[in-house]
C-alpha cells in the first residue's frame, strides 16, 4: 500500500500504461483492482481524501478524478479493441461452408393449387363446403338431372360400393364421380344466397396411367341467388382465370353439355405452353380446356326445393390435378400420388 499521495499517483499511472496489453481476464481483474467498489486502489484513494487537510483535498481530488477518467477510457478502449479482434477472428473462417439447416416440409402441389383457387374465390365471397366421398346414386346423378339409362352416364365411369343390404335403384352406394352432390347438400341445407366452393376427392373407374387417376381432386363452385345470370358466370370465371394464371390470359367460353347446367360451357384459356400459336399440348388449337361450367339447371334447383323461377345460379368445376400438371410442367399424373421425397421437396415452402 503506497504511503504518499505521490506514490499513489505514480503507481496508478504505471498501471494505466499496462492496460493496453491486457487480455480479457486480466482486464477484468485490473478493473476490480483499480476501480472496484470495495477495495479498488483508486476508490480507496478517493475515500482517503476526506482525511487530508482541506487545502490539499482539491488538487489531489482533481488529480485522482482525472486518473479515474483515464482508467475508464483506457478500459473501454481495450475492451473495444478486443471485441474487434474476436470479430475479425470470426471473419477469418470459411463462410462458404454450408449453413446449419433444419428439415423443411411442404404442402402438396395439388393442395397448394386448391388453396390458391379457394383463396381467389374467398375474395369473391365464396365459402368452402365439403361432403362425403361415398354417395348415393340419387345425389350423384338423379338429383343432378342425369336421366336414368342416358349416355350422359358414360361421361362418368362409376365405381360402386358393395355395402350389403339390397338397396333399391337410386339408393345404391357409389364413390362420387364429381363434387357436384355437395351442390345438392349445400342447397338443401341452406337457402340462397349461396356462394360456395367445394374441393374434394372424386373417383372414376379409370385405369391409372400418365393422364388418368381413379381418384383425383376436383373443385366445384356454386352461386345461387336472385338475379344471377350468364354474365355473372362469365365475369366471375374470367376474373378467376386472370387472378390464377395472369391478368392477360386469353379466355373463351364455348358450348358444352352437362346434365346439371344449362346453358353449359367449357372455359378455355390461351395455351400456357405455346401462348396460342398451337402446339402438341393444345392439339394445335392454341386453347386449353380448363373448366366446365353453366347456369344451374332448373331441375337441380327443384330437387333442392329452391324455386327456379325466383332463383338462378351458376356452377363450375375444374380438376386441380390437371391444373397442377400444367402449372409446374409435371408430365405424369402418377407422380402426384407418390411420396417421392425428391419430387415433393421441389415444392417446399
Amino acid at each position: 500500500m503506497p504511503t504518499t499521495r505521490h506514490d499513489v499517483v505514480q503507481q496508478l499511472q504505471a498501471r494505466l500504461a499496462g492496460v493496453d496489453s491486457m487480455d480479457e481476464a486480466a482486464l477484468e481483474r485490473e478493473h476490480v483492482h483499480v476501480l472496484g467498489r470495495k477495495a479498488g486502489l483508486l476508490t480507496a484513494a478517493l475515500k482517503s481524501i476526506s482525511q487530508l487537510p482541506i487545502e490539499e483535498r482539491r488538487t489531489f481530488g482533481a488529480e485522482l478524478n482525472q486518473l479515474r477518467q483515464r482508467f475508464e477510457s483506457a478500459f473501454e478502449a481495450r475492451r473495444r479493441t478486443m471485441a474487434q479482434t474476436v470479430r475479425s477472428q470470426e471473419d477469418d473462417v470459411d463462410l462458404t461452408m454450408p449453413a446449419r439447416t433444419t428439415w423443411s416440409g411442404g404442402i402438396h402441389p395439388v393442395t397448394r393449387v386448391i388453396d390458391e383457387i379457394v383463396e381467389i374465390f374467398h375474395r369473391l365471397g365464396f365459402a368452402v363446403a365439403v361432403g362425403p366421398e361415398a354417395e348415393t346414386e340419387w345425389l350423384n346423378f338423379g338429383a343432378l338431372n342425369f336421366p336414368p339409362d342416358h349416355p350422359a352416364m358414360d361421361m362418368h365411369d362409376t365405381l360402386y360400393l358393395d355395402v350389403g343390404g339390397d338397396p333399391p335403384e337410386g339408393e345404391r352406394m357409389l364413390l362420387r364421380t364429381h363434387t357436384s352432390p355437395v351442390q345438392i347438400r349445400t342447397l338443401q341445407a341452406s337457402p340462397p344466397p349461396v356462394r360456395v366452393v367445394i374441393p374434394g376427392t372424386c373417383y372414376r373407374n379409370d385405369t391409372f396411367d400418365a393422364s388418368h387417376a381413379p381418384a383425383f381432386s376436383q373443385i366445384e363452385g356454386l352461386a345461387v341467388d336472385e338475379g344471377i345470370t350468364f354474365v355473372d358466370l362469365k365475369a366471375t370465371l374470367i376474373h378467376f382465370a386472370h387472378e390464377f394464371f395472369s391478368p392477360d390470359t386469353k379466355v373463351r367460353f364455348r358450348p358444352s353439355f352437362f346434365p346439371f347446367t344449362e346453358p353449359s360451357a367449357e372455359m378455355d384459356i390461351g395455351c400456357l405452353l405455346c401462348g396460342g400459336s398451337g402446339c402438341r399440348a393444345c392439339k394445335g388449337s392454341g386453347w386449353m380446356e380448363i373448366l366446365g361450367c353453366g347456369m344451374v339447371h332448373p331441375n337441380v334447383l327443384k330437387s333442392c326445393d329452391v324455386d327456379p323461377e325466383r332463383y338462378t345460379g351458376f356452377a363450375f368445376g375444374m380438376g386441380p390435378h390437371r391444373i397442377t400438371m400444367l402449372r409446374y410442367g409435371i408430365p405424369d399424373i402418377r407422380m402426384l400420388f407418390e411420396g417421392d421425397m425428391r419430387f415433393l421437396s421441389q415444392f417446399g415452402e
Binding site: L124, G125, F126, A127, V128, A129, V130, T186, S190, P193, V194, R195, V196, A223, D225, I228, F230, V231, D232, K234, A235, T236, I238, H239, R252, F253, R254, P255, P263, A265
Partner: peptide
Amino acid sequence: YQNFSSELRPFRVGRLPDA
C-alpha cells in the same frame, strides 16, 4: 357465348361459413 358481357356485377356474399 363470346357476345355476352363479362362485366363483374355486384353480388351478395353467401351466408355459410367455411366448413
